[in-house]
Amino acid sequence: MKRTRALLIAPVAVTLLAVTACSGGATDGAASGGDKAALVIAQGGLGDQSYNDLANAGFESALDATGISGNTIESDDVVGQGEQLLRRAGQSGVNLVVDLEYSHNEIIGSVAQDFPDTDWVIVNAEAEGDNVASVLFQEQEGSYLAGALAALQTSNTDDPRINEDKVIGVIGGTAGVGIDKFLVGFIQGAKDVDPDVEVLTAYSNDFGDPAKGQQLAQSMFEKGADIVYSVAGGTGAGVIQAAEEANHYAIGVDDDQDGQAPGTVLTSVLKRTDLAVETLVQDFADGAFPGGETVSFGLKEDAVGLTDFEYTKDAIPQSTLDTLDELRQGIIDGDITVWNVVTDGYPDFYSGS
Rank of each mutant, 00 (worst) to 15 (best):
residue 2 K to I: 11
residue 3 R to G: 06
residue 4 T to R: 14
residue 8 L to G: 02
residue 13 A to V: 14
residue 18 A to P: 00
residue 24 G to Q: 14
residue 25 G to V: 14
residue 27 T to G: 15
residue 32 S to G: 15
residue 33 G to I: 08
residue 36 K to T: 12
residue 39 L to K: 07
residue 45 G to V: 10
residue 46 L to Y: 04
residue 47 G to A: 10
residue 51 Y to Q: 02
residue 54 L to V: 10
residue 55 A to F: 06
residue 60 E to N: 14
residue 66 T to P: 03
residue 66 T to I: 10
residue 67 G to C: 06
residue 71 N to V: 14
residue 71 N to R: 15
residue 73 I to R: 06
residue 74 E to P: 01
residue 77 D to R: 12
residue 81 Q to F: 09
residue 82 G to N: 07
residue 87 R to A: 07
residue 91 Q to I: 04
residue 96 L to N: 02
residue 97 V to L: 10
residue 98 V to P: 03
residue 105 N to M: 12
residue 105 N to W: 12
residue 110 S to H: 12
residue 113 Q to C: 05
residue 122 I to D: 05
residue 123 V to P: 01
residue 124 N to L: 13
residue 132 V to D: 05
residue 133 A to C: 15
residue 152 L to Q: 02
residue 155 S to V: 01
residue 155 S to T: 10
residue 155 S to H: 06
residue 159 D to Y: 00
residue 160 P to D: 14
residue 160 P to L: 14
residue 168 I to A: 02
residue 170 V to E: 02
residue 171 I to A: 09
residue 172 G to D: 09
residue 178 G to I: 15
residue 180 D to R: 06
residue 186 F to M: 03
residue 189 G to E: 08
residue 191 K to G: 01
residue 192 D to Y: 02
residue 193 V to L: 05
residue 202 A to S: 13
residue 208 G to M: 05
residue 212 K to H: 02
residue 213 G to R: 11
residue 216 L to E: 02
residue 220 M to N: 01
residue 221 F to K: 04
residue 221 F to E: 04
residue 222 E to H: 09
residue 224 G to A: 03
residue 229 Y to D: 00
residue 230 S to E: 13
residue 231 V to G: 08
residue 235 T to F: 07
residue 236 G to Q: 10
residue 237 A to H: 09
residue 241 Q to W: 00
residue 242 A to T: 03
residue 247 N to A: 10
residue 248 H to G: 09
residue 249 Y to I: 03
residue 249 Y to L: 07
residue 254 D to M: 08
residue 254 D to L: 07
residue 256 D to T: 01
residue 259 G to Q: 12
residue 260 Q to Y: 06
residue 265 V to N: 00
residue 267 T to L: 03
residue 270 L to A: 06
residue 273 T to S: 14
residue 275 L to K: 13
residue 277 V to W: 09
residue 281 V to S: 07
residue 282 Q to N: 13
residue 284 F to H: 14
residue 285 A to S: 15
residue 288 A to Y: 04
residue 291 G to V: 06
residue 291 G to Y: 11
residue 292 G to M: 10
residue 297 F to P: 00
residue 300 K to L: 09
residue 304 V to Q: 03
residue 305 G to L: 11
residue 305 G to Q: 13
residue 306 L to M: 09
residue 314 D to W: 04
residue 314 D to K: 13
residue 315 A to E: 00
residue 317 P to Y: 09
residue 318 Q to S: 10
residue 320 T to M: 02
residue 320 T to H: 05
residue 323 T to W: 00
residue 323 T to C: 05
residue 325 D to L: 12
residue 326 E to K: 12
residue 327 L to H: 03
residue 329 Q to A: 12
residue 331 I to D: 03
residue 334 G to N: 12
residue 336 I to W: 00
residue 338 V to W: 04
residue 344 D to F: 09
residue 345 G to Y: 08
residue 348 D to G: 11
residue 351 S to K: 12
